[in-house]
Design a protein around this nucleic acid. Structure first.
Lengths: 152, 152
DNA sequence: ATGCAACCTCAAGCTGACTTGAGATCAAGT
DNA sequence: ACTTGATCTCAAGTCAGCTTGAGGTTGCAT
């Protein structure tokens, strides 16, 4: 039985709807599909149709991006989710918790940095050699091109 | 009186030394100069010579970058510093304090986000419509290309 | 005076995350 | 049937922040 792709009532939505619901540009959604973050089926006329659950998936992507994750990392996180079926609440909870860990880590790192900076202001140094705020060893770890995230 | 550029003893250093001291690639230093973040004088043979204080300046740039500032923002911050003379301890303290404000803001934002996420995990929603974590209004403000910073 | 590392310029390339444009096709209301 | 807006593909462009490469020059120690 060939699915009635062009008439799907409450399950399949065109890209424009996804765009409106997520606030994402149509081009961005296509890009995410190309990257494999979401999937779509096609109508007879080659137009994309997305599952409503993909809106949710994209919502997650947007939140994760705000936390500074790159698409590659997000992809990894999402890889644990089934592409075909609608992800369950439990799926989301698990991943959300993982994000929570990310945030916690970032907050701790920032807090440590703030403390160091306070010492620095105290002594007025900002000297590259002695300053705990910045040293080469740390940097070596965070090497490589691409976007620079906060206190990686 | 023409300065003896090739023999400056403790004030003028070649780019390689700056590179070693800061851990920056020579190409990056040249790039920063091109962008106007630092300045140099030239020897008779057209080689760059930097003030020792530029190492400090670069150190500041690196720290600020870690906090997620773009070069343009850093440039603005540094614009308040004299290019010619060695910046005073007070100069650094003022800017450092400004950075501290940045960090504080980021920590607060992250903390708020974590709280929201906690609620979300509680209700298991992550629904784009109802979820406080993510809404389009917020996004509109943080629009534009360039590196995506954490919870801008 | 010579060798060689360090330096120079300029153009082009790269990553990430998209956008823009051209030119063509689809879907749905009247 | 027609029009209009949504959608399609594919190539190229953008921005930040650099790196890489080619081809050439400097400066310092011996």
């Amino acid at each position: 039985m060939v699915a009635r792709l062009t008439k799907g009532r409450n399950d399949l939505v065109p890209i424009g709807v996804v765009s409106q619901r997520t606030g994402l540009a149509v081009s961005a959604i296509r890009y995410y599909e190309e990257r494999g973050l979401i999937a779509s089926v096609r109508t007879g006329g080659n137009q994309r149709r997305f599952l409503r659950s993909d809106i949710r998936r994209l919502s997650f992507i947007l939140i994760a991006q705000r936390l500074g994750l790159g698409l590659a990392e997000i992809e990894r996180e999402l890889a644990s989710l089934p592409q075909g079926r609608t992800p369950t609440v439990l799926d989301w909870q698990r991943i959300s918790r993982s994000l929570r860990g990310e945030i916690d880590g970032r907050i701790q790192l920032l807090t440590r940095t703030r403390n160091k900076l306070d010492e620095c202001i105290g002594c007025g140094c900002l000297s590259l050699d002695r300053c705990a705020l910045y040293n080469k060893e740390d940097r070596a770890a965070a090497a490589g091109p691409g976007p620079r995230f906060v206190l990686d």
